[in-house]
Design a protein around this nucleic acid. Sequence first.
DNA 1: ATTTGACCAGAAATATAAAATCAGTCATCT
DNA 2: AGATGACTGATTTTATATTTCTGGTCAAAT
Lengths: 239, 239
Amino acid sequence: MDKDPLSRPARILAAASRLVAHYGFNKTTVDDIASEAGVSKGAVYLEWPGKDELFDALLAYEMKRMLTDYRGRIEADPEGGRIANLYRHALLALHANPLICALYVRDSRILGDFVRRQDVERYTSRLLLGNESIRQMQAAGLLRDDIRPETVAYLFTIIALGFIQVGAVLPMQDVPQLEEVAQAVTRMVEGGLAREGGDSAAGKQAFLKVLDLMMEQYGAVTGTESGNGGAESKENSGG
Amino acid sequence: MDKDPLSRPARILAAASRLVAHYGFNKTTVDDIASEAGVSKGAVYLEWPGKDELFDALLAYEMKRMLTDYRGRIEADPEGGRIANLYRHALLALHANPLICALYVRDSRILGDFVRRQDVERYTSRLLLGNESIRQMQAAGLLRDDIRPETVAYLFTIIALGFIQVGAVLPMQDVPQLEEVAQAVTRMVEGGLAREGGDSAAGKQAFLKVLDLMMEQYGAVTGTESGNGGAESKENSGG
DNA sequence: ATTTGACCAGAAATATAAAATCAGTCATCT
DNA sequence: AGATGACTGATTTTATATTTCTGGTCAAAT
């Protein structure tokens, strides 16, 4: 721990991520973040003009981590271009990032007053598979086209919502492994929405391009140069 | 309105249902309920010893309404015994009853302090398709048996959760019709979880028996003798 | 025998003041 | 320059007093 490879802003964001994901925006002070990152409070204000801007940068940082994770999962999957796998990886990448989950479901315990001051819509609006991507999948013959793209997007939103919140609101006695649930969702999407014989490889490439565009949206967040952000392998199943 | 066919306790419960669904348990006073029902406060205490007991009766009343509605939908559907339709009707019956929805997702804005004093688990635990029913469906050859019943139940819970909450947490720009979403869910379940060639009629009969058992659990709530409770045709799609 | 609504005690909401916390600054140190 | 942390005013939290509200009762009315 004597030499942290991450740049200072990245260390601050990582510290903020840990604290905010646990205590929420309101209960996390700039002092907390600074000492967690091993710097002084002044150092934080050398990077960002205020707490709101830091939190803005944090969300962009986490979004990039999540998208990087998502991209990795798709690339590693030979059938990653199929709609069911695309959605499955989206669910898992989302699930692996508590802060983006909180953002997605607008968890006011985490977002606190920030949700009132800032516009969180721009993050959640094109978070999962958007209407355009779904249309693309239909064009590539990977998704049935006798169902409106808006309906598919809505359905995907519903399942993602439930997927994220089920642990928090329903402490069920028998919680299956995360992988098991993800497989069941995949099977449902594959069986009910996918189309046979589409060009999976083309679909993957097309979607990776969409992901790249989304990544660009969040700009070069200060201090994410070292590594991909390390968002992988954070999958605990229970709630 | 000069002669209400409902008995007094039923009128009180119906009034309570309207008020509690809108204002929540905490903000609905016994006086409010009494005047909404057109009786005095004393009359309420002639039926139930206290507010908690009234609310208990209200939940049982609404549960019976929802189950009656559910039963009606299944009976009216020639293919109502298939797992996808069974689940679809469950979603729609659930969606049509705001109070049971609130109970299902433990909406503290509606349940208020009641959730702390009373055990709401006993309602939600066997609300939707339970593990036993799912096993039954597998035995009847209507559901693939290469997936654990617990996983199916969990998946159904996830989708129901998202289905209920999507309107509240995500004011999307393009909200499809309720029927359209329900059909998409049906298609997914049918394509991904159902099995070809099971005995649909037997499945329906078996499940109707389960429903009857559930209904019995909630006993003869005072004042539900007239009609089935009138839970049908209350489907607005938006949130 | 039913039903009512004024009444009461305790709970909840509101108001006010005192204490603690925190976002942001900047003189100082390295 | 680069970084720090004591300092400050505004905000939040805590504590306390006061008022309003509401669950439950019961003598009186129907």
